[in-house]
Amino acid sequence: MPSVVDINWYIALSGILFVIGVLGVLLRRNAIIVFMSIELMLNSANLLFVAFARHLGSLHGQVLVFFVITVAAAEVAVGLALIVAIFRTKKSINIDEINILKG
């Protein structure tokens, strides 16, 4: 049997990926990059699900990953369509320039 990696390392790795994603959402201004950061957050959760499923020897986590992937794909379809629509109107996808609504 190959050497088993301790579950804590997986938790740490997905935690780091998640934080990178959060920082990307909060700091980057390009809508596509923000969107990619959100995907990174979702995938860090997926990694965690798989790691836990392996660690606990239960299938729930693995099944959940399929749901998350499917939903993420649906979200991509809608999100990219929205970004394209906005680009057609505004000729920009910088979220600082998308600012008619405020107050």
Partner: peptide, 25 residues
């Protein structure tokens, strides 16, 4: 206005559901 509202809702909504999924994990 509508497009902007949609994009804002989408980004915030997707952001919050990824936090939610990580919480489930």
């Amino acid at each position: 206005e509508s497009e902007e509202s949609s994009l804002k809702y989408f980004l915030v909504g997707a952001f919050s559901s990824s936090i939610f999924v990580f919480g489930i994990a």
